[in-house]
Design a binder for these strands. Structure first.
Lengths: 143, 143
DNA sequence: TATTGTTATACTCTATAACTATA
DNA sequence: TATAGTTATAGAGTATAACAATA
């Protein structure tokens, strides 16, 4: 009864472990910088955008009340800031501080280095091909 | 000063979003089954193994004290069980119950379906190639 | 002495429900 | 009435520190 569809024939059987390994690296980098995976993602999303709380919660698949705590803690640490929205008096905009932006740049570099051990096991040509396939998968309408 | 190495030239720039999207799917499946990503991983690891607490904690990159809570809650739900280790009287083995094994099979099926929207955007040939590249990356010594 | 696992404690992340203020 | 955001509360996940039992 055991070892059922362990055939590894499906792409998802490779995607899942790849995601876990990638997340482990990100998680380690997060721990070194005292950041959760969620907060890393928040900072990444805010890199080139200013978003309202509700919009941010939507993108992360979180509740607004969860965002409040997340943003408040990050704000206290000086990584991002809140400001009233210009059009809607109910809404609050969130955006990176300079310190937050510096941190994001550092995280990006650390991530490339951290994933180096994994990616460098492939030839440069294979790396390019893998990146290409992943992008095509992600950029599809459904993705 | 913004938009620095946004060139997306590095494989890691594709691996990270792919991992986040994959994790979002897994997270949703977990939520439907009342399981955290960590617990999903625990169950997956225990699929074909019986491990001691310390060994399990090592594989997950967690502290032993964290494992205690994680395993205790899963045990109360009947998904896994504890038993004294035969060789070392200090150690405790952890393994899946039948109910846990049934759940793992269901999760695997749900995951393949859940990732279908993503993977099906590629041709069958591309899917095979992507899976092959990911496996080669993961199976390398460093990975 | 060192290792295995647990307990106690504290903080982050998350959700639900109830609330205020604005649309 | 509906939406935006916060607060209060509760539970899971995580770490650190201290502990008992065994090696």
């Amino acid at each position: 009864m055991k070892q059922p569809s362990q055939s590894s024939e499906h792409l998802s059987d490779a995607l899942v472990p790849a995601a876990f390994v990638t997340m482990a690296v990100l998680n380690k980098i997060g721990a070194e910088n005292n950041l959760s995976l969620t907060l890393i993602r928040v900072l990444g999303i805010l890199w080139d955008r200013r978003l309202r709380m509700a919009e941010l919660a939507d993108r992360l698949g979180l509740k607004k009340s969860t965002m409040t705590g997340l943003v408040s803690r990050a704000e206290q640490r000086g990584l991002l800031a809140r400001a009233p929205n210009a059009e809607d008096d109910r809404a609050i905009d969130v955006f990176l501080t300079n310190e937050g932006a510096v941190l994001v740049e550092r995280l990006r570099a650390q991530t490339q280095r951290g994933l180096g051990g994994l990616t460098s096991s492939l030839s440069v040509s294979d790396q390019r091909q893998l990146a290409d396939l992943l992008w095509r998968m992600l950029e599809s309408p459904k993705g």
